[in-house]
Write a protein that binds this DNA or RNA. Structure first.
Lengths: 146, 146
DNA sequence: TCGATTTTGCAAATTATTTGCAATATTCGC
DNA sequence: GCGAATATTGCAAATAATTTGCAAAATCGA
């Protein structure tokens, strides 16, 4: 787990990429807001009219390829993005079907159950990563439903 | 776990929906092919020029709302669809990063670990459903990689 | 600082999916 | 089985998220 915006600058530099206004701004937002954001939301959060939405998309794509950012798909039509596991503890999401709020959970049953090993033994498939999203009702919405 | 195309006919009828060529054909494909298919693939599999792709989308949307079909998103751009848990044993997918092949796994660490209860106790969030997809290399591709 | 290279803004293209509407199919009562 | 009432479909056009071409602007390395 590495910290600081300057780390990303070095990382990009090391890979031959420039440290630009758009890239730096997108990373600032992602390191600041602790939940997965849509490209559109990130763009709005930049509050910099000089930066175009396309550049946000381009930055996100680059960061994804460098394993700095992780794409989260919750079936909403638009994808969300958050810092990858290397820069944030591994976690999953609790998505409220009623209000849409997204909470994190640290518990990971894939690791806990040793599922990866089980699958490799049984099927020969080598699991490298997984996506786990949990849907239901958050506490406030559960209360309202009564 | 109910079987047979006629069951679906009764189900649709019971909900006030018609049993149409498009709906019947889409369900036939989904009950026949044991892996999640894209709308486009389902449409091609119908081999019926009288049925329009829009009708496939409309049928899928209806089936989703009736819990007959389940949407699967693997980050490919297009969604995939398969029979819902009520008509097929609960399972997850092993998606090969190299060749794209999709295998099923019956093992479910969310159920096994009692994660739902754990989360409810800890956070008050009531989990109703979950999405778990596993990515990596299938056995053939793992061999080729060597 | 300067030129070479990379990146960006902007507008237009792309792709999956949805929708309006007139035409067609299905259903239901007789 | 028949025909009216209703639901669904085909088709073409609309959407919405994301990508891309290209000339202009920013960044980098010497």
């Amino acid at each position: 787990m590495r910290h600081g915006i300057t780390h990303f600058k070095d990382l990009l530099g090391g890979e031959g990429y420039s440290w630009t206004r758009a890239r730096s701004a997108v990373l600032t937002v992602l390191t600041t807001v602790p939940r997965p954001l849509r490209a559109e939301e990130i763009h709005r959060a930049l509050r910099d009219p000089r930066i175009n939405l396309s550049s946000v998309y381009r930055a996100l794509r680059l960061f994804e390829s460098l394993n700095v950012v992780h794409r989260v798909e919750l079936g909403e039509g638009a994808a969300r993005y958050e810092l990858a596991d290397d820069y944030r503890d591994h976690h999953h999401h609790l998505v409220c079907d009623a209000c849409g709020r997204i909470e994190d959970v640290a518990a990971c049953p894939v690791e806990a159950a040793g599922l990866t090993r089980h699958i490799r033994k049984r099927t020969g498939f080598a699991v490298r990563s997984h996506v786990l999203e949990l849907f239901g009702l958050c506490r406030p919405c559960r209360r309202d439903a009564r």
